[in-house]
């Protein structure tokens, strides 16, 4: 077995084992937090989120991150409560979307300072049955790279309006990353790459004509 295969196998085994660790939304969650008082508080926070109809997977992941990073029980509790609050905000902003991926993406965007109004704009740019998780993720990545949120949103919504696929939008972030690594300013890299993706897309008129009627939200 090649070294490459061996690593992949090891990682697959590791992922398989960790995916079985937390009881994701199936019965009570038991988290490996040493501080018993904090553990109970975190579990209660997660139960409350579940009762409000919020996805618990991101909250369990947040708690596990805190455990791995050796955060205090109190800090994990605060982090999980904050994450639950952001999920609730994301649900309101992205309504009627309720998928775990979209709410998680929305909450993560809010966490790095993306204004809530921008999430609404992204939701409005695509039909409701189409997931906006990927455009929000790319917006989050671009903002984290230091690109002004307004500029990043503009480029992403133009691509969405022109009929870009999630994969094409995601490749925008990857290309910007490569350009930044090569020394280009993040803002300039976004400009160049967005133009590159757009050159592959149909014209605005053709995109509008091909969009099924009644799917676009006002």
């Amino acid at each position: 077995m090649s070294m490459h295969r061996r690593v992949l196998t090891l990682v697959s085994l590791a992922l398989a084992s960790v995916s079985a660790v937390p009881a994701l939304a199936q019965g009570p969650v038991v988290l490996p937090i040493a501080d018993a008082k904090a553990r109970v508080a975190v579990e209660r926070e997660i139960a409350r989120a579940a009762a409000r109809g919020l996805p618990v997977q991101p909250l369990i992941a947040k708690a596990m991150e805190g455990v791995t990073k050796q955060a205090t029980g109190e800090r994990i509790q605060v982090a999980v409560a904050s994450a639950a609050k952001r999920l609730e905000q994301a649900r309101t902003l992205l309504a009627p979307s309720t998928s775990v991926a979209e709410l998680t993406s929305g909450a993560d965007a809010l966490a790095i300072g993306v204004p809530g109004a921008m999430l609404k704009q992204i939701r409005a740019a695509w039909p409701v049955e189409r997931s906006v998780a990927m455009p929000i993720d790319v917006l989050t990545e671009l903002v984290a790279r230091g690109i002004p949120a307004r500029h990043a949103l503009e480029q992403i919504t133009v691509l969405m309006a022109r009929g870009a696929t999630p994969s094409q939008i995601a490749s925008l972030g990857t290309s910007v990353q490569a350009d930044v690594a090569a020394g280009l300013a993040p803002d300039a890299a976004l400009e160049v790459r967005a133009r590159g993706v757009m050159s592959l897309l149909p014209s605005p008129a053709a995109a509008a004509a091909s969009a099924p009627s009644g799917q676009r939200r006002p």
Partner: peptide
């Protein structure tokens, strides 16, 4: 080093990547 950096909720940071 080549990923966007985001603060975690525990006083540290993580790298962020979007896979197409």
């Amino acid at each position: 080093r080549n990923l966007a950096r985001v603060r975690d909720d525990f006083g540290g940071e993580s790298g962020l990547i979007v896979i197409p």
